[in-house]
């Protein structure tokens, strides 16, 4: 059995809900960006920069960035608690899993900070 102490929303119901809300945000962003790239007749640097200079696009991108972070944490938590278990590898599983979560958490925070730098550096 795995406790929920390292999960994102601290309860299965919250994680379930956050996973779906973040998924809808990311899907909307992906579909919008794909449509923008395909439907723009000639995608120049000016057009691309112009898109990312608008406030609404920065807000949309930032919400998507946060969605990626939450969604990845919940998904990776589910994967780690399924495979790095005491049943499969004994007591060292918990230590290994928490270490992995720390590393993955660090990468996630790096993604968020990097993304903010990109968005506000335009």
């Amino acid at each position: 059995m795995v406790t929920a102490v390292t999960s994102f929303g601290r309860s299965g119901l919250y994680d379930w809900m956050i996973q779906r809300v973040s998924a809808v945000v990311m899907a909307a962003y992906t579909i919008f960006l794909a449509a923008f790239i395909v439907l723009t007749p000639e995608l120049t640097y000016e057009v691309w920069k112009g898109l990312y200079s608008t406030l609404w696009m920065r807000v949309f991108s930032l919400i998507t960035l946060f969605s990626i972070a939450a969604h990845a944490w919940i998904g990776l938590w589910a994967v780690l608690t399924d495979y790095l278990t005491n049943r499969l590898m004994g007591n060292k599983a918990t230590i290994l899993r928490v270490l992995m979560q720390m590393v993955l958490g660090l990468i996630t925070v790096t993604y968020v900070v990097w993304g903010i730098e990109i968005l506000w550096g335009v």
């Binding site: 640097y45 691309w48 920069k49 990312y52 993604y111 990097w114 993304g115 990109i118 550096g121 335009v122």
Partner: peptide
């Protein structure tokens, strides 16, 4: 993110 960074 790398692609976005570079392109912008």
């Amino acid at each position: 993110l790398w692609m976005l960074d570079k392109s912008l």
